[in-house]
């Protein structure tokens, strides 16, 4: 069996799909539909949550206590998704998310995990040399700031609620959401006005 598994992945996929379809287990239409749902999730959804938390104190509290409920409140589909926890950055504490064992990622609110999140270098270095890792993105934390690395090993998925940058006073939620990037919600970068 090991030998047949060494077949090129693209050929394996076609063969497995054909067999599952012939057995009535998985149809092409289902794959197309599932793919469309997955493609629709993107960092813009997490960014909307962040912007709302920045402007609505009650939403911020709700989001920190149950990320999945807070996502659903903005119409983001969470059914069948793992629980979502939210880690709040403050002037004293910066959060960074990694999965050292595989690539657990808050897909419901950020979409597919980016290449770097899945890479061996990111997974190895995040827990051992997190400040050196952040420097790859040009992110430098003050020496006195506590850095908390959250290794996402089990049933929860984690997103970071970054600090609202100075110079954004009076901005609308839409404008605030537009400055929040994927990396800000994993903790490798920090949003700027």
């Amino acid at each position: 069996m090991d030998k047949i598994l060494e077949t090129d992945g693209e050929r394996l996929l076609v063969a497995v799909r054909n067999l599952l379809e012939a057995k009535g287990l998985v149809t092409t239409a289902e794959i197309t539909e599932r793919r469309a749902i997955t493609d629709a999730a993107n960092p813009g959804q997490g960014a909307r949550m962040v912007a709302k938390a920045w402007t609505d104190p009650a939403y911020r509290v709700a989001m920190l206590s149950d990320g999945a409920k807070a996502a659903e409140a903005l119409g983001i589909p969470m059914r069948g998704m793992p629980p979502l926890g939210v880690l709040e950055n403050t002037a004293e504490l910066h959060n960074l998310v990694v999965c050292t064992l595989c690539s657990c990622y808050p897909r419901a609110v950020l979409g597919y995990p980016p290449f770097w999140f899945k890479s061996a270098a990111y997974r190895a270095r995040a827990v051992r040399d997190p400040r050196g890792l952040l420097a790859e993105w040009g992110t430098h934390l003050p020496e006195a700031m506590k850095l908390r690395v959250v290794d996402s090993t089990a049933d929860y998925r984690w997103m970071v609620l970054p600090m609202r940058p100075a110079g954004t006073e009076g901005w609308s939620e839409e404008k605030l959401a537009s400055i929040v990037r994927e990396g800000d919600m994993i903790g490798v970068t920090i949003p700027a006005a």
Partner: peptide, 15 residues
């Protein structure tokens, strides 16, 4: 199980 693996500590991340 890659956390802290020495062989990747000097490897840059492709961002």
């Amino acid at each position: 199980d890659l956390g802290g693996a020495s062989k990747f500590m000097c490897e840059p991340v492709d961002i």
